[in-house]
Design a protein around this nucleic acid. Structure first.
Length: 124
DNA sequence: AGGGTGACACAGG
DNA sequence: GCCTGTGCCACCC
C-alpha cells in the first residue's frame, strides 16, 4: 500500500476521473503481489457502476499516461494470462526493467510469465 | 462531432 | 503454443 503525498494528489487531479480511479486503486496492491489490467477494470466497475468491467484496454491507457507519480507501482500490473505486458513503451529497458522490478519484490517470473494463482492480489 | 489509438482480452485456426 | 482478427473502453486530437 502506498501513501499519496499532497504533491501526488496535485498530479492526479490533472488526469481524467477514470485514470485517477485506476491509479488510486493501484496504490492498494502491496509489494510482492501483482494485479492485471482486467482485474483493475473489474474492481473499478464493482465500486462504481458507471465503469465497465471490460475496460481493460482503458486501464492500459491510464498507465500510459501515468504521471507515474513515482509512488504508484505500475510495474505490478500485468496481463490476464500472466505474461508481463508492456512498460514505458518498450524501449529503454522496457519489459526487461519491469521484470527486474518484480523479481526484486520477490515475485517469480519464468518464461516471461508470472503465476497468477500465487501472486495475484485479491481486492475486496 | 468524428475518427484514430493503445502498457488489453478473448476466440479461432 | 504462437499468430490473427475482432471487440472494447476511455482518451485525445
Amino acid at each position: 500500500m502506498v501513501e499519496l503525498s499532497p504533491e501526488d494528489e496535485q498530479k492526479l487531479i490533472t488526469l481524467s476521473p477514470y485514470q485517477q480511479a485506476v491509479l488510486r486503486l493501484l496504490t492498494k496492491v502491496p509489494k510482492g503481489k501483482v494485479t492485471t489490467y482486467s482485474d483493475l477494470a473489474k474492481e473499478l466497475a464493482k465500486r462504481n457502476n458507471a465503469y465497465s468491467p471490460k475496460a481493460s484496454r482503458a486501464v492500459g491507457t491510464a498507465m500510459r499516461r501515468n504521471v507515474c507519480a513515482p509512488r504508484i507501482p505500475c510495474h505490478r500490473v500485468i496481463k490476464s494470462d500472466g505474461s508481463i505486458g508492456n512498460f514505458r513503451g518498450g524501449a529503454l529497458g522496457g519489459v526487461a526493467e519491469k521484470i527486474k522490478l518484480l523479481q526484486e519484490e520477490g515475485i517469480e517470473v519464468e518464461n516471461g510469465k508470472v503465476d497468477l494463482n500465487r501472486f495475484r492480489h485479491d481486492f475486496s
